[in-house]
Design a protein around this nucleic acid. Structure first.
Lengths: 216, 216
DNA sequence: TTTTGAAAGTGGTCTGACCACTCATATTGA
DNA sequence: TCAATATGAGTGGTCAGACCACTTTCAAAA
């Protein structure tokens, strides 16, 4: 009777359609008008369903082209949720802490895995650090850690938190920092997990303190 | 130039409005027509934004009554996402991993803090575990960990991931589990951080494996 | 006083109309 | 012939207006 929320049915129908026709990420799904015709509902109802799925990052729409099943690797779910979740108390401390949680977990994962701990990219960082000329971007290093940890969700969350943190790794390393970073890189290469984690934490905490001092 | 997606702006506007006017969960937000008038957009655009937020479980609409800010208990989000996203093993793995990252960080924080590690609530868990009659809900324990870690952002992320994970801690502990948990509780009480973390990880991993076996 | 029912307000849906944009194709110009 | 251009079909983005179904309110009727 009161089956309110027809757009929810549409969401279901879409899911089934995607399943049945084996539509894969990146593929195009029928146009809004076509779906409205097929499912016998108004176009606005179709759009409500599609917009919902879009906000969830499940589909992607391109004006003039069509609607596509999204590669959920880049979904905005986390972003949307964060903007809502972080509304009340802008507890910067929580954000910083949580960001670091993900970073430490990443470096731990990397150390515990022989393949990732021995990657050439670390040697590359070492060289760039030793090169006096070359400005070493902190963020490149940390982002590499997050990427190589292999956890895409964690990476996505980190990116958001990193932005919220006011890009704490922005800028190039100072001379006293270089030694610290070389230590971390060495620990990674030798799979000394605890040492790498601790050194990183020390560096990260120190950096944060510096930044606070600069602001005031 | 024209940034498409007006409804995304609406989402932002709504967030700001909710924040500014201090609208709390359960409170009513302006009607669709009112919002359309205020924000100078068509009602259908407003609806697209609202429907998106509804699917996320952030608002709740009742025909004839209005739209309300939701309590964060809605699990439609989980249902929809699990049917769309979680088919992918890698994603599933990422979610589980990320959830555990937050849990391990929480238990570590608790152990490192004398106040939280000595709280009476742990003694309460010990008693409940020893009591044969009393069914011990795993989830109560883990949620307590997350809450007492003091990081509200981490807690909120965890709640979401926990739902995504298919409530891995659902149910009561079996007899062989009790010893494991008692060990964890003991380690917490004695502030043996590493031990607590490792024991917890072992338990969590074991639980996950059990669950996978049950499913197949 | 209690009951009833009409009115106002709200979300749910549909229709039809434009607009802005993309892309494939036809047309034009060299 | 070939390249540049114009055009038209198709698509998502948005709007306005119209009903419908439902809830609440409150004044009129019993």
């Amino acid at each position: 009777m009161n089956q309110s929320k027809r757009y929810l049915d549409i969401v279901r129908d879409l899911r089934d359609m995607i399943r049945q026709e084996n539509i894969r990420p990146g593929d195009r799904i029928p146009s809004e008008r076509e779906l409205a015709e097929t499912l016998q509902v108004g176009r606005s109802t179709i759009r409500e369903a599609l917009r919902s799925l879009e906000l969830l990052g499940l589909i992607e729409t391109r004006r003039g082209e069509g609607t596509f099943l999204a590669d959920h690797r880049n979904n905005m779910l986390v972003e949307v949720l964060s903007t809502f979740i972080l509304q009340d108390n802008q507890s910067q401390k929580d954000v910083q802490e949580t960001r670091q949680i993900h970073e430490l977990a990443a470096i731990q994962t990397i150390c515990n895995n022989k393949a990732t701990s021995q990657m050439a990219v670390w040697e590359g960082f070492r060289i760039r650090l030793s090169d006096e000329e070359n400005g070493f971007q902190r963020e490149d290093f940390v982002r590499e850690l997050m990427v190589l940890s292999g956890n895409r969700l964690s990476l996505k969350i980190w990116v958001i938190l990193h932005q919220y943190s006011g890009n704490p790794y922005n800028g190039t390393v100072s001379t006293p920092e270089k030694e610290r970073l070389l230590n971390i890189l060495a620990a990674i290469g030798q799979q000394q997990t605890d040492k790498a984690v601790n050194e990183f934490k020390t560096w990260s905490d120190w950096l944060l303190k510096e930044r606070l001092r600069d602001d005031s």
